[in-house]
Amino acid sequence: MVPATAAQAVPLVEVQVKGDLDAQAAPELHRLLEEALALRPQQIVVDLADCDTIDAAGILLLMDTHRRAVRDGGAVALRSPSERARRALRLAKVDRIMQLLPYANVALTPAGQVVL
């Protein structure tokens, strides 16, 4: 696979999480997020609508993905977390670093900003 250049970057990649985002599920999500990062998107949206809980391993994976995306000029947003998942994200202060999107409809402006 040839790495994407800035000219080849895609505006948005969406990754859907089904089931709990815990230490057992983190390796598979890590693989998917690696593929997403390789595309050098302006925005990665991780859809958590079907994810009931997130543990420390899942939070660390999301934070690392966000750090790497920002380093490459992008960002990560989390969409539709359950109340339980939202509570875990707030306790870890993830909501201060990544945008939590409450709605399923997400669009990007030409500047790469998320619009609800």
Rank of each mutant, 00 (worst) to 15 (best):
A9K: 12
R68F: 10
S80C: 14
I97V: 15
K18Y: 07
A57N: 07
L48C: 05
T109Q: 05
V94A: 14
L89S: 12
M98D: 07
A104K: 00
P102R: 06
K18D: 14
L48A: 05
V10H: 10
N105H: 15
A88C: 10
A36Q: 03
L39D: 13
R84M: 06
L32I: 00
Q42N: 07
G112V: 08
D95T: 15
E34A: 09
H30Q: 15
R87D: 12
A85K: 11
L33V: 08
V17I: 14
A69L: 13
P27K: 08
G73V: 00
E14V: 06
R87I: 11
L29T: 03
G74R: 07
A75E: 11
E34C: 05
A7E: 15
L78K: 05
R31P: 00
E14Y: 00
D52Y: 08
V115P: 05
S82G: 08
A36G: 03
A9F: 03
V10W: 10
L37H: 10
P102I: 01
I54G: 02
E35I: 01
Q8S: 14
R96E: 04
A85L: 10
A38D: 13
A4Q: 14
Q24W: 04
Q42H: 10
D64T: 10
Q43P: 02
L91P: 04
L48N: 04
D64Y: 03
T109E: 02
Y103I: 06
E14G: 02
A57D: 11
L116I: 05
E83L: 10
A25T: 14
P41H: 11
Q113A: 09
D52R: 15
D47W: 02
D55E: 00
A107D: 06
D72L: 10
Q113Y: 01
V106P: 06
D22H: 00
P102H: 09
L12A: 09
A77T: 12
L37C: 11
L29Y: 09
G58V: 07
D64G: 07
H30R: 15
L21C: 12
A6S: 09
K93E: 03
L33S: 11
E83M: 08
A77H: 13
P3T: 01
I54L: 12
Q43S: 08
D72V: 01
A104P: 01
I44P: 02
P27E: 07
A7M: 13
A111L: 11
A23E: 05
V76M: 00
P3F: 01
A25E: 12
L78E: 04
V76P: 01
R71W: 04
A49D: 04
D47Q: 09
A4D: 14
M63C: 06
A111V: 03
D50Y: 14
L60D: 12
A38K: 09
C51M: 07
L12N: 06
L101P: 04
E83C: 02
V114L: 15
V46H: 06
A23Q: 08
V114T: 15
A4G: 10
M63G: 03
G73D: 04
N105W: 12
A57T: 07
A111S: 14
M1V: 13
A36T: 01
H30M: 11
P81R: 03
Y103K: 12
L62V: 02
M98N: 09
R71Y: 06
L108Q: 04
A107F: 09
V2W: 13
D95I: 15
A111C: 05
V94S: 05
D64K: 13
